[in-house]
Amino acid sequence: MKAIVTVIGEDRVGIIAGVCVDLAAFNVNVLDISQTVMQGYFTMMMVVDVSNATCPVAELAQKLDEKGKEMNLSIRLQREEIFQAMHRV
């Protein structure tokens, strides 16, 4: 089962590291990363595999949301199907 992680916030040292450490702790495998800086904002999208995650996806999304608040970023994990449904026929 794949999910998309999006991270948006002010650019600074250690954003990718911080998010990846958390994902690894829940046994979530990162499949792809792309990132850019848009109007001074760090914007990252990761495709991750949550099939073997050590907690339910809903819980994982909540934990990342909390982590984002700690780091003053928006971190969102959403199952990929929502984007497929809306943007692919």
Binding site: V57, A58, E59, A61, L77, Q78, R79, E81, I82
Partner: peptide, 9 residues
């Protein structure tokens, strides 16, 4: 609630 979190909607 679970679906809200999993899909972010």
């Amino acid at each position: 609630q679970d679906i809200e979190w999993e899909f972010g909607i």
